[in-house]
Computed example of a mutant assay.
Amino acid sequence: MRTMMHKDRLVAPVVKWVGGKRQLLEDLTPLFPKRVMSYCEPFCGGGAVLFKLQPDTAWVNDINSELIRMYEVIRDDVEELIRALGEHPNEEEHYYRVRDWDRDKEKYGNLSKVQKAARVIYLNKTCYNGLFRVNNAGEFNTPFGHYKTPNIVNEHTLRAVSAYFQRAQITFSSTDYAEVLAGVAKGTFVYLDPPYDPVSSTANFTGYAKGGFDRAEQIRLRECCDELDRRGIKFMLSNSATEFIKEQYGAYQITIVKAKRAINSNAAKRGQIDEVVVRNYK
Protein backbone atom coordinates (compact mmCIF):
# COMPACT_ATOMS: atom_id res chain seq x y z
CA MET A 1 0.00 0.00 0.00
CA ARG A 2 1.29 3.47 -0.86
CA THR A 3 1.83 5.84 2.02
CA MET A 4 0.77 9.45 1.80
CA MET A 5 3.51 12.02 1.41
CA HIS A 6 4.50 14.24 4.30
CA LYS A 7 2.67 17.57 4.09
CA ASP A 8 4.85 20.67 3.98
CA ARG A 9 3.34 23.68 5.76
CA LEU A 10 5.23 26.02 3.45
CA VAL A 11 3.23 24.73 0.49
CA ALA A 12 0.63 27.48 0.00
CA PRO A 13 -0.88 29.68 -2.73
CA VAL A 14 1.67 31.79 -4.58
CA VAL A 15 -0.95 34.14 -6.05
CA LYS A 16 -4.10 35.73 -4.69
CA TRP A 17 -7.14 34.67 -6.67
CA VAL A 18 -10.76 35.79 -6.82
CA GLY A 19 -12.78 33.39 -4.68
CA GLY A 20 -9.64 31.82 -3.21
CA LYS A 21 -10.37 29.33 -0.44
CA ARG A 22 -7.50 29.98 1.98
CA GLN A 23 -9.78 31.86 4.41
CA LEU A 24 -12.34 28.99 4.35
CA LEU A 25 -9.98 26.07 4.89
CA GLU A 26 -10.97 25.68 8.55
CA ASP A 27 -14.60 25.25 7.48
CA LEU A 28 -13.84 23.02 4.51
CA THR A 29 -11.27 20.69 6.08
CA PRO A 30 -13.76 18.73 8.26
CA LEU A 31 -15.89 18.17 5.16
CA PHE A 32 -13.16 16.59 3.03
CA PRO A 33 -13.01 12.79 2.74
CA LYS A 34 -10.75 11.38 5.47
CA ARG A 35 -8.23 10.06 2.95
CA VAL A 36 -7.41 11.73 -0.37
CA MET A 37 -4.73 10.01 -2.45
CA SER A 38 -6.02 10.94 -5.91
CA TYR A 39 -7.47 14.40 -6.50
CA CYS A 40 -8.95 16.48 -9.30
CA GLU A 41 -9.57 20.22 -9.34
CA PRO A 42 -11.01 21.55 -12.64
CA PHE A 43 -11.09 25.22 -11.48
CA CYS A 44 -7.78 25.45 -9.66
CA GLY A 45 -7.25 29.20 -9.32
CA GLY A 46 -4.88 29.92 -6.43
CA GLY A 47 -4.91 26.26 -5.39
CA ALA A 48 -5.56 26.69 -1.64
CA VAL A 49 -7.37 23.34 -1.37
CA LEU A 50 -4.77 21.52 -3.47
CA PHE A 51 -1.97 22.84 -1.27
CA LYS A 52 -3.88 22.00 1.91
CA LEU A 53 -4.47 18.38 0.86
CA GLN A 54 -1.17 17.87 -1.01
CA PRO A 55 -2.38 14.63 -2.65
CA ASP A 56 0.08 12.13 -4.13
CA THR A 57 -1.71 12.23 -7.49
CA ALA A 58 -3.66 15.15 -8.91
CA TRP A 59 -5.19 16.52 -12.09
CA VAL A 60 -4.99 20.32 -11.89
CA ASN A 61 -6.88 22.37 -14.46
CA ASP A 62 -7.86 25.98 -15.02
CA ILE A 63 -9.23 27.66 -18.12
CA ASN A 64 -6.70 30.45 -17.55
CA SER A 65 -3.70 29.15 -19.48
CA GLU A 66 -1.40 31.85 -18.05
CA LEU A 67 -2.04 30.47 -14.56
CA ILE A 68 -1.35 26.87 -15.58
CA ARG A 69 1.85 27.90 -17.37
CA MET A 70 2.92 29.62 -14.14
CA TYR A 71 2.44 26.38 -12.18
CA GLU A 72 4.44 24.43 -14.76
CA VAL A 73 7.30 26.95 -14.53
CA ILE A 74 7.24 26.72 -10.72
CA ARG A 75 7.62 22.95 -11.09
CA ASP A 76 10.32 23.00 -13.76
CA ASP A 77 12.29 26.26 -13.40
CA VAL A 78 11.70 27.71 -9.95
CA GLU A 79 15.21 29.18 -9.49
CA GLU A 80 15.09 30.92 -12.85
CA LEU A 81 11.62 32.19 -11.96
CA ILE A 82 12.86 33.60 -8.65
CA ARG A 83 15.67 35.40 -10.50
CA ALA A 84 13.20 36.82 -13.03
CA LEU A 85 10.88 38.07 -10.29
CA GLY A 86 13.80 39.86 -8.65
CA GLU A 87 14.09 42.04 -11.76
CA HIS A 88 10.62 43.57 -11.24
CA PRO A 89 10.48 46.64 -8.94
CA ASN A 90 7.32 47.83 -7.18
CA GLU A 91 7.05 50.93 -9.35
CA GLU A 92 3.94 52.21 -11.12
CA GLU A 93 5.64 53.04 -14.41
CA HIS A 94 7.26 49.61 -14.57
CA TYR A 95 3.97 47.95 -13.59
CA TYR A 96 2.06 49.45 -16.53
CA ARG A 97 4.89 48.67 -18.91
CA VAL A 98 4.81 45.00 -17.86
CA ARG A 99 1.01 44.93 -17.83
CA ASP A 100 1.01 46.07 -21.44
CA TRP A 101 3.33 43.33 -22.67
CA ASP A 102 0.35 41.32 -23.93
CA ARG A 103 -0.89 44.21 -26.10
CA ASP A 104 1.81 43.34 -28.64
CA LYS A 105 0.92 39.74 -29.46
CA GLU A 106 4.03 39.04 -31.51
CA LYS A 107 6.38 40.43 -28.87
CA TYR A 108 4.53 38.63 -26.10
CA GLY A 109 4.70 35.38 -28.03
CA ASN A 110 8.50 35.66 -28.11
CA LEU A 111 8.83 35.90 -24.33
CA SER A 112 10.05 32.80 -22.49
CA LYS A 113 7.76 30.74 -20.27
CA VAL A 114 9.69 31.99 -17.24
CA GLN A 115 9.21 35.64 -18.26
CA LYS A 116 5.47 35.09 -18.72
CA ALA A 117 5.15 33.28 -15.39
CA ALA A 118 7.09 36.01 -13.57
CA ARG A 119 4.78 38.57 -15.13
CA VAL A 120 1.69 36.81 -13.76
CA ILE A 121 3.10 36.70 -10.22
CA TYR A 122 4.49 40.25 -10.35
CA LEU A 123 1.21 41.73 -11.60
CA ASN A 124 -0.77 39.69 -9.07
CA LYS A 125 1.37 40.91 -6.18
CA THR A 126 1.34 44.57 -7.20
CA CYS A 127 -2.05 45.13 -8.88
CA TYR A 128 -5.08 46.57 -7.13
CA ASN A 129 -6.53 44.11 -4.59
CA GLY A 130 -4.68 41.17 -6.17
CA LEU A 131 -7.46 41.01 -8.76
CA PHE A 132 -6.51 39.00 -11.86
CA ARG A 133 -8.85 40.38 -14.51
CA VAL A 134 -8.71 40.44 -18.29
CA ASN A 135 -10.75 42.32 -20.87
CA ASN A 136 -12.61 40.81 -23.84
CA ALA A 137 -9.35 40.64 -25.78
CA GLY A 138 -7.81 38.54 -23.00
CA GLU A 139 -5.50 41.38 -21.89
CA PHE A 140 -4.72 41.95 -18.20
CA ASN A 141 -6.36 45.26 -17.23
CA THR A 142 -6.23 45.68 -13.42
CA PRO A 143 -4.69 49.01 -12.25
CA PHE A 144 -1.59 49.42 -10.09
CA GLY A 145 -2.17 48.71 -6.39
CA HIS A 146 0.12 51.27 -4.71
CA TYR A 147 1.24 48.81 -1.99
CA LYS A 148 4.31 49.82 0.01
CA THR A 149 6.01 46.43 0.41
CA PRO A 150 4.35 43.67 -1.65
CA ASN A 151 6.00 40.26 -1.32
CA ILE A 152 6.93 39.92 -4.99
CA VAL A 153 9.63 37.27 -4.51
CA ASN A 154 8.31 34.76 -1.97
CA GLU A 155 11.25 32.37 -2.34
CA HIS A 156 10.35 29.95 0.46
CA THR A 157 6.81 29.35 -0.78
CA LEU A 158 7.87 29.09 -4.42
CA ARG A 159 10.54 26.50 -3.60
CA ALA A 160 8.17 24.51 -1.36
CA VAL A 161 5.46 24.42 -4.03
CA SER A 162 8.05 23.42 -6.64
CA ALA A 163 9.26 20.56 -4.45
CA TYR A 164 5.68 19.34 -3.94
CA PHE A 165 4.96 19.49 -7.67
CA GLN A 166 8.10 17.47 -8.37
CA ARG A 167 7.48 14.72 -5.82
CA ALA A 168 3.78 14.28 -6.60
CA GLN A 169 2.26 12.98 -9.82
CA ILE A 170 0.42 16.04 -11.12
CA THR A 171 -1.11 16.52 -14.53
CA PHE A 172 -1.64 20.16 -15.50
CA SER A 173 -4.14 21.21 -18.15
CA SER A 174 -6.03 24.25 -19.37
CA THR A 175 -9.22 23.02 -20.96
CA ASP A 176 -12.98 22.85 -20.47
CA TYR A 177 -13.96 21.48 -17.06
CA ALA A 178 -16.33 18.92 -18.58
CA GLU A 179 -13.44 17.34 -20.47
CA VAL A 180 -11.50 17.06 -17.23
CA LEU A 181 -14.43 15.53 -15.33
CA ALA A 182 -15.09 13.00 -18.09
CA GLY A 183 -11.61 11.58 -17.55
CA VAL A 184 -11.72 11.28 -13.75
CA ALA A 185 -11.01 7.78 -12.48
CA LYS A 186 -13.00 6.12 -9.74
CA GLY A 187 -11.40 6.62 -6.33
CA THR A 188 -10.52 10.24 -7.14
CA PHE A 189 -11.89 13.07 -5.00
CA VAL A 190 -13.09 16.04 -7.06
CA TYR A 191 -13.24 19.57 -5.67
CA LEU A 192 -15.09 22.13 -7.78
CA ASP A 193 -14.73 25.88 -7.22
CA PRO A 194 -16.31 27.45 -10.31
CA PRO A 195 -17.06 31.12 -10.90
CA TYR A 196 -19.93 31.80 -8.53
CA ASP A 197 -23.55 32.45 -9.33
CA PRO A 198 -23.89 36.22 -8.68
CA VAL A 199 -25.78 37.17 -5.53
CA SER A 200 -26.92 40.41 -7.20
CA SER A 201 -26.90 42.07 -10.60
CA THR A 202 -23.73 43.99 -9.68
CA ALA A 203 -21.86 41.16 -7.96
CA ASN A 204 -20.87 39.11 -10.99
CA PHE A 205 -17.16 38.53 -11.56
CA THR A 206 -15.89 36.17 -14.24
CA GLY A 207 -13.05 38.30 -15.61
CA TYR A 208 -10.22 35.88 -14.81
CA ALA A 209 -10.48 34.55 -18.38
CA LYS A 210 -12.14 35.61 -21.61
CA GLY A 211 -15.81 34.75 -21.80
CA GLY A 212 -17.99 34.18 -18.79
CA PHE A 213 -19.82 31.65 -16.66
CA ASP A 214 -23.56 32.21 -16.84
CA ARG A 215 -26.44 30.13 -15.51
CA ALA A 216 -26.38 27.84 -18.54
CA GLU A 217 -22.80 26.98 -17.50
CA GLN A 218 -23.92 26.47 -13.90
CA ILE A 219 -26.53 23.99 -15.13
CA ARG A 220 -23.99 22.22 -17.36
CA LEU A 221 -21.68 21.91 -14.37
CA ARG A 222 -24.46 20.48 -12.20
CA GLU A 223 -25.15 17.91 -14.92
CA CYS A 224 -21.45 16.97 -14.82
CA CYS A 225 -21.77 16.55 -11.04
CA ASP A 226 -24.78 14.29 -11.56
CA GLU A 227 -22.65 12.17 -13.87
CA LEU A 228 -19.85 12.00 -11.29
CA ASP A 229 -22.40 10.83 -8.74
CA ARG A 230 -23.71 8.15 -11.10
CA ARG A 231 -20.13 6.93 -11.55
CA GLY A 232 -19.60 6.71 -7.80
CA ILE A 233 -17.03 9.52 -7.67
CA LYS A 234 -16.98 11.75 -4.58
CA PHE A 235 -17.21 15.46 -5.23
CA MET A 236 -17.38 18.68 -3.22
CA LEU A 237 -18.49 21.96 -4.79
CA SER A 238 -18.40 25.55 -3.53
CA ASN A 239 -20.71 28.27 -4.79
CA SER A 240 -22.74 31.22 -3.61
CA ALA A 241 -25.86 30.41 -1.57
CA THR A 242 -28.37 31.70 -4.10
CA GLU A 243 -31.77 30.06 -4.40
CA PHE A 244 -30.82 29.00 -7.93
CA ILE A 245 -27.74 27.10 -6.76
CA LYS A 246 -29.54 25.55 -3.78
CA GLU A 247 -32.28 24.32 -6.15
CA GLN A 248 -29.74 22.93 -8.62
CA TYR A 249 -28.03 20.85 -5.93
CA GLY A 250 -31.11 20.00 -3.88
CA ALA A 251 -30.43 16.27 -4.26
CA TYR A 252 -27.10 16.55 -2.42
CA GLN A 253 -25.83 17.47 1.02
CA ILE A 254 -25.58 21.24 1.39
CA THR A 255 -23.62 22.96 4.14
CA ILE A 256 -23.71 26.74 4.56
CA VAL A 257 -20.44 28.50 5.42
CA LYS A 258 -19.63 32.17 5.97
CA ALA A 259 -17.08 33.66 3.59
CA LYS A 260 -15.53 37.10 3.56
CA ARG A 261 -16.25 39.08 0.42
CA ALA A 262 -13.03 40.95 -0.38
CA ILE A 263 -13.15 42.22 -3.96
CA ASN A 264 -15.85 44.88 -3.75
CA SER A 265 -14.37 48.28 -4.67
CA ASN A 266 -16.41 49.78 -1.83
CA ALA A 267 -14.72 48.68 1.42
CA ALA A 268 -17.98 49.15 3.33
CA LYS A 269 -19.60 46.43 1.21
CA ARG A 270 -16.93 43.85 1.97
CA GLY A 271 -18.04 41.44 4.65
CA GLN A 272 -19.55 38.06 5.47
CA ILE A 273 -21.61 36.29 2.86
CA ASP A 274 -23.21 32.84 2.77
CA GLU A 275 -21.70 30.19 0.53
CA VAL A 276 -22.79 26.62 -0.05
CA VAL A 277 -20.60 23.54 0.14
CA VAL A 278 -22.23 20.71 -1.80
CA ARG A 279 -21.24 17.07 -1.30
CA ASN A 280 -22.45 13.73 -2.62
CA TYR A 281 -21.05 11.87 0.41
CA LYS A 282 -21.35 12.10 4.20
Rank of each mutant, 00 (worst) to 15 (best):
N136H: 11
N136M: 02
A137G: 09
A137H: 06
A137W: 03
G138S: 04
G138Y: 03
G138E: 03
G138Q: 04
E139N: 11
F140K: 08
N141Y: 02
T142A: 09
T142S: 15
T142F: 01
T142M: 05
P143R: 08
P143T: 14
F144G: 11
F144Q: 11
G145E: 09
G145S: 06
H146Q: 10
H146A: 06
Y147H: 08
Y147P: 02
Y147W: 05
Y147A: 03
K148C: 00
K148M: 00
K148A: 13
P150V: 14
P150R: 10
P150M: 07
N151S: 14
I152W: 04
V153D: 07
V153W: 03
N154I: 09
N154E: 11
N154L: 01
E155I: 07
E155M: 01
E155R: 08
E155H: 02
H156N: 13
H156I: 05
H156V: 09
T157H: 02
T157N: 11
T157E: 02
L158R: 05
L158C: 05
R159A: 01
R159F: 00
R159Q: 10
R159G: 03
R159N: 03
A160I: 14
A160E: 12
V161C: 06
S162L: 03
A163K: 06
Y164D: 09
Y164P: 08
Y164C: 04
Y164I: 12
F165W: 06
Q166C: 10
Q166H: 10
R167Y: 01
R167F: 00
R167L: 01
A168R: 09
A168K: 09
Q169F: 01
Q169L: 01
I170H: 07
I170Q: 08
T171K: 15
T171P: 00
T171V: 15
T171Q: 14
T171E: 13
T171A: 07
F172D: 08
F172C: 07
F172R: 07
F172G: 09
S173L: 04
S174D: 13
S174L: 02
T175P: 01
D176Q: 12
D176G: 10
D176L: 03
A178S: 15
A178H: 14
A178I: 15
A178W: 04
E179R: 15
V180W: 02
V180K: 04
L181H: 05
L181G: 05
L181M: 10
L181P: 04
L181A: 03
G183V: 08
V184M: 10
V184C: 10
A185G: 06
A185Y: 02
A185H: 10
K186D: 04
K186E: 12
K186N: 02
